[in-house]
């Protein structure tokens, strides 16, 4: 009798070990997601709860982002750019350095802002609490939120005054770090490397065209532009320039980029006065 009990417990034990290792090796399953249902987000003094976002996600998000958050929803074939795969924990719009997780506020802002020129609309119809809950829900898809901490947001110094000197200096930065390689000398997204760009999954992707009056995906304020080239857009060819553009120079570059846009602006008026020409891609480094 005792031996049979021992045999059975052995068998059961082996089965349990096998089952556990299966879970660990398999792709993300509903089981993993259940175990992370307690994920929270913190936006100011609002606390978001993943479990409270379940209904909203199923109604509004699942059709693109998929039940497992892998971006493989029903609409996947018809959507371009493709829906984000939340399981990877890689996000374009962050305030944190390249290679780090975004802070909750970044995801919250993306949900509210939407992503221009994509199928992701502005979700300003949700209350702040609902958005905070959705942020927690987005996080519960990736195991990275369990094992890693978000990066430290980059510092954005106060914006200086727009001057002709700064705009000219910004043009030098544009030439020095060679933004034009992809974005083109006039910001028309027609640089020599523009045509061959691919995202991290090997799909073709176009650089931002400054001359169309479109809004950049990660925001269109001066602070947003500053943040974009200091953090880079992870998952895309846009790298971080944090090591190569000083904060002061970054403001200069922001002002210069405004001169490429079709919208009326103080920067554009100054550039017209200066009769500022596009950078010369054939000029030797440091001589514009």
């Amino acid at each position: 009798m005792q031996t049979t009990v021992r045999k059975w417990s052995l068998l059961l034990g082996a089965a349990a070990v096998l089952a556990v290792s299966q879970v660990a090796w398999a792709q993300l399953t509903k089981y993993d997601l259940e175990s992370r249902m307690g994920t929270e987000s913190h936006i100011g003094n609002i606390t978001g709860h993943a479990k409270d976002a379940k209904a909203d996600y199923r109604r509004y998000c699942v059709v693109c982002h998929g039940e497992l958050g892998d971006g493989n929803g029903e609409s996947f074939p018809w959507v371009d750019p493709k829906p984000r795969d939340f399981q990877l924990g890689v996000f374009k719009c962050r305030s944190t350095p390249t290679g780090t997780l975004p802070v909750d506020q970044d995801l919250f802002d993306t949900i509210a802002r939407g992503l221009d020129r994509s199928n992701m609309p502005q979700w300003s119809t949700f209350t702040k609490q609902e958005r905070a809950d959705l942020v927690a829900w987005v996080k519960h898809f990736s195991p990275r939120w369990v094992s890693e901490k978000p990066g430290t947001p980059i510092q954005i110094p106060p914006e200086p005054e727009i001057t002709a000197e700064r705009i000219k200096a910004g043009r030098d930065v544009f030439a020095k770090v060679q933004c034009w390689k992809c974005h083109g000398v006039q910001g028309m997204a027609n640089g020599p490397s523009a045509a061959t760009l691919t995202d991290d999954l090997g799909r073709p992707i176009a650089p931002f065209n400054f001359t169309e009056g479109a809004r950049p995906k990660c925001g269109s304020t001066d602070q947003d532009l500053f943040r974009i080239f200091m953090t880079g857009l992870d998952g895309t060819p846009m790298p971080s320039f944090a090591d190569n553009i000083k904060p002061e120079e970054a403001w200069d570059l922001v002002f210069y980029l405004r001169t490429l846009e079709p919208q009326k602006s103080k920067e554009k008026a100054i550039a017209k006065q200066l009769a500022l020409k596009p950078v010369d891609p054939n000029a030797p480094a440091g001589q514009q």
Binding site: T98, V177, S240
Partner: peptide, 16 residues
């Protein structure tokens, strides 16, 4: 991304 964390940094001429 499930094994290591990627990154993407610019290296213009003279970059550190």
């Amino acid at each position: 991304p499930m094994i290591n964390v990627g990154w993407n940094q610019s290296q213009p001429p003279g970059a550190p």
